[in-house]
Amino acid sequence: MTTTPDLVLWVVLPYACLAVFVVGHYWRYRYDKFGWTTLSSQLYESRLLRWGSPLFHFGILAVLLGHVMGLGIPKSWTEAVGISEGVYHVLAVGVGAVAGFCTLVGMAILIYRRRTVGPVFSATTRMDKVMYLALAVVILLGIANTVGGNIIDHYDYREGLSVWFRGIFRLDPHPEIMAGAPFTFQAHAVTAFLLFALWPFTRLVHVFSAPIGYLWRPYVPYRSREDRLGQRRGGRGWERVGENRRR
C-alpha cells in the first residue's frame, strides 16, 4: 500500500522533473541559443582551473558511466555474462570511490576558486549559485551512498532503486520500492531529480553540446551567406537563365 507522500515523491516528482527537463531544454534552445554556453571563466584565472576543472569533469564523466551501469543494466544481465555480485561490488565501489573522490576534490577547488577569485565571483549569476548548491548536495549524497550503502550498511540498490528508476522510463513506476530504501538513497534520488528540473535553466546545458562531432568533421567549415530579403539573384539580364546562378 503506497501512501500519498510516497506517490508524490516517487512518481509525480520524477515525471514532473523529467518533463521540465525535456521541455525546458527545448524551450531554452529555441529561446536562448546565444546563452547556450559553458560561460568559461578561464580568461580571469587559470592556475586553479587547470587542476579543478579536469578533475571535476573527468570525475563526473566516470560517475555518469557508473550510473549508466548501476541504474541502466539489470542485475540479471551482468550475472548472465558471468560477473558475480562480489566482483561487481568491488568494481563499483573501487571505481566509484576514485571517481567520486576526483569529482569532490575538483568541485571543492572550483567552488573555492569561484568564491575567492574576485573577477570569477563577480561574474557568477544567481542561477550559478543555485546550481552549485544543488550539484554539491547531489554529489555529496551520492558519495555518502557509495560509502554508507556499500561499506557500512549494505543496501543492494540494483534490486531496489535501480528497478524503480527503470520503471519510471518503462511507464511502470513502483513507488513502494523507494519507500523502503535507506534515507540517503531517497534523498539522493529526490535531489537528483530536482537538479534535472533545474538543469535547463543553468549553464549545465553545455553538457548537451559536448563536441564529439569534432573528431570527424572537416577542419574548415564553409558556409554560404544566407539568402536574405532583397538579395539580388546572381547573373545579369543578358546571361542565359540558369547559368552562373548563385545560390
Binding site: S209, R217, V220, Y222, S224
Partner: peptide, 18 residues
C-alpha cells in the same frame, strides 16, 4: 587555411564561401 576554424570543437567558426 584558418587554424581557428580548425580548432573550434563546435564548428562555429566558418569561412564564407562567397
Amino acid at each position: 587555411n584558418p587554424s581557428c576554424a580548425a580548432s573550434c570543437p563546435s564548428g562555429a567558426i566558418y569561412k564564407r564561401s562567397e
